[in-house]
């Protein structure tokens, strides 16, 4: 797989990653979360081409409204679509049904093509909506919104801690890799590489654990009792009510279209 298509080849930039301010940023994060969840469930449940095309159009509209970074988004969509393309090639031949065409003795069926097409539409609609509505939130806002939506407190704390230290641990990792490079370490497909990487990961974990002990002490020193206080009070404004009314109508219509 080419480097550019690997999501994980890009390191975590988290909150440092800039995105253009857009009208969607004025919406309440809780509403965005709720809308995306319901939308994703409906898309997965949908089973007609018309409905799915409407969903994709909706997701594309959100992506445009959110002014997503074109290159970054395209890279992510492509990375996911590699899996979909793989299915697109496989499914027509493995599904039984009305024959459509034949390649080297293998028969492609209409049902298979349709199935693969549906998966592609569903995957892309949910992904675009997710990136546009939630991917543009900062990770800590996401945590706070989840907390307001009654997600268990410990889970939210875990999310906030993880996000807070991703960058720090990422730096630590880069430092250790630089040290290995300075000693002329080159990754190859052999046991020496795997052992070295195993030690690297082990050492990264040791350092992380020791860091977490220092963090724990520092937090206790400041009176941490296992409770984070959410200092931002999210309040619904007029644009939120408008969005809520629109989404109720839209999602209701979607449910109706799926049930019919």
């Amino acid at each position: 797989m080419p480097k550019a298509l690997e999501h994980s080849a890009t390191s975590w930039k988290g909150q440092a990653l800039k995105h253009n301010r857009s009208i969607l940023d004025r919406l309440d994060p809780r509403l965005r979360l709720l809308f995306t969840s319901v939308f994703a469930l409906l898309v997965v449940a949908a089973n007609s081409l018309g409905v799915l095309l409407v969903c994709l159009a909706t997701a594309l509209t959100f992506a445009l409204l959110a002014k997503l970074n074109l290159r970054r988004t395209l890279r992510r969509v492509l990375a996911m679509d590699l899996f979909v393309i793989f299915l697109l090639f496989m499914l027509p031949f493995t599904t039984e049904g009305t024959p459509l065409f034949e390649v080297a003795g293998f028969v492609a069926s209409v049902e298979g093509v349709q199935h693969a097409l549906f998966i592609g539409l569903k995957a892309n609609s949910t992904l675009l909506c997710l990136l546009a509505l939630i991917g543009t939130l900062s990770a800590s806002t996401l945590g706070h919104a989840l907390a307001y939506l009654k997600v268990p407190e410990k889970l939210v704390h875990l999310l906030l801690f993880t996000v807070r230290y991703l960058d720090v641990i990422g730096q630590e990792y880069k430092r250790m890799r630089r040290a290995m490079q300075a000693r002329a370490f080159v990754m190859r497909a052999n046991r020496h590489t795997w052992r070295a990487i195993g030690y690297l990961i082990g050492m990264l974990l040791v350092r992380s654990l020791e860091r977490s002990e220092r963090i724990n002490n520092a937090m206790k020193c400041r009176g941490f009792t296992g409770q984070f206080y959410l200092l931002d009070n999210l309040r619904l404004t007029r644009i939120d009510y408008l969005f809520a009314i629109f989404s109720c109508g839209y999602l209701g219509a979607l449910i109706g279209a799926i049930l019919l």
């Binding site: 641990i169 974990l205 977490s212 963090i215 724990n216």
Partner: peptide, 9 residues
């Protein structure tokens, strides 16, 4: 919590 958060990072 801090320990698990840092480790999961």
């Amino acid at each position: 919590l801090p320990q698990v958060g840092v480790l999961s990072a």
